[in-house]
Amino acid sequence: MLHIKCPHCGLRSQNEFSYGGDATVKRPELNKDVSDKDWDNFVYLRKSPRGKHLELWQHISGCRQWIKVERDTLTHEIFKTLKASEEA
């Protein structure tokens, strides 16, 4: 069971969190023309690397904040955690 350090609450068990997927995906800007390809990239396409992965988690049974976690997808080692607003 993962042990995730919430930047707001400290070290907590995985079952307090809910996963939110790849944190590097950028939503196309509002009020601008968006091509099908851009939508495709945003909605469906994922790198899903083996190794370092920056991902979103929500501390759903805690402070309910979204956070960023940099984790190894092969070893599950967590390198760092950030507030959602912080850049990796």
Partner: peptide, 13 residues
């Protein structure tokens, strides 16, 4: 297990 992973082993929850 609910998160991206290449580990061919599971977690407890």
């Amino acid at each position: 297990d609910g998160y991206n992973s290449y580990a061919q082993r599971g977690n407890l929850p």
